[in-house]
Design a protein around this nucleic acid. Sequence first.
DNA 1: TGGAGCATCACATGAATGTGTGGTTTTTTG
DNA 2: CAAAAAACCACACATTCATGTGATGCTCCA
Lengths: 210, 210
Amino acid sequence: MIKLLIYEDNAQLREGLTMLIDGSEGFSVLAAFKNCSNVAHEVKTFRPDVILMDIDMPVVNGLEGLKRIRETDDEVKVLMLTVFDDHKNIFQALQNGANGYILKKTPPARLLEYIQEASTGGAPMTASVAAQVLKMFSQMNLPADKDYNLSDREKQVLQLLVNGYSYKMIAAEMFIAMDTVRSHIKKIYEKLHVNSKSEAVAKAFRDKLV
Amino acid sequence: MIKLLIYEDNAQLREGLTMLIDGSEGFSVLAAFKNCSNVAHEVKTFRPDVILMDIDMPVVNGLEGLKRIRETDDEVKVLMLTVFDDHKNIFQALQNGANGYILKKTPPARLLEYIQEASTGGAPMTASVAAQVLKMFSQMNLPADKDYNLSDREKQVLQLLVNGYSYKMIAAEMFIAMDTVRSHIKKIYEKLHVNSKSEAVAKAFRDKLV
DNA sequence: TGGAGCATCACATGAATGTGTGGTTTTTTG
DNA sequence: CAAAAAACCACACATTCATGTGATGCTCCA
């Protein structure tokens, strides 16, 4: 028996969901609320397995509600159930530990499957949402593994530079003369097409050389 | 009619998959290969809708194959089909633009659904994989929004510093004297607990201040 | 075997940078 | 309003840094 809490501001939909789910074999809706203003306490009281969470609610919205839940509870499965499927909301929700993200247009039978899936540790997502998630992944922090042909020694020097070492400290660290450090750095500047420490450091970060 | 290519080194499984899929209504397997050594050319020749891609293959594995495909083709849907469901492989695959990631233990009927889903722009994932993806999201490298109480002006200076500007250039850019730039930078160093340009730049990147 | 690349070191110079100390004016805020 | 914070400016000094020139020894490889 999967125990649920529902957060949804629209009274009609809230009733509808409760009816549907509570009337289905193996599901039990413990309670349904119209916003998250008291979510932390409610979760603690009812100890549900899964929470259906709308995003667009007055007073305290679903994303904030999710945060409040996750402050004390990493176990309960939170399923975002919303009309929005824009980047920003999806990202925020997943970032904050949502276990799934499905759209309200989901047909009832499918919804029950999704709840089931969430309760068993899955991550149900509407296809369009899943596609966006993958897209975010492929676009995100692109390694952009550029190759500047830095020699091993040059890489070491750059690494230390990035760590805030002075030439003198680098020399000490690498057991070489400061002048040698200088010539390495000169080489590095040439290869990265920069001409100052800070530019080199910035480039190292941007191109994920470090 | 969904046209497929299959890459799978195990001959038995390759045959099995081909049989299953090609024998199903609405699916057509154009060809099946035992590694990716010629994947770019094959994709260009057969122009499939969906590619089933094993990861663990000799010579050229599936991840490398995926990369090669994506170098020239962003349209074809690539479905990773593998026994591995570890972080590293999943991450790499999604990073490189896979459209789905499903395990070989997936029952045949489900597999056909997944292929269907991929072809229509979805992102089919085995539940365990989806769960890991979400976990990566919530654990991933966040703004980590530290607050160093930088004033607006200080933030501007830091930003320009990160872009490789010299004090002189910053002064010109901000219509202030170089000495003022200096005092701002001094303040910044204090607030970030650093004492050089490169450290400040590094910290700005690390803490996502820029 | 001889050039190409890498790593090492040296000396020199001017510009950039960090640090210290002093100040005025404007904006924010209790 | 008065105090605090922010923004602004100036002068001085030592250090760091970028840049140039030149040199030695090593390894790789064609």
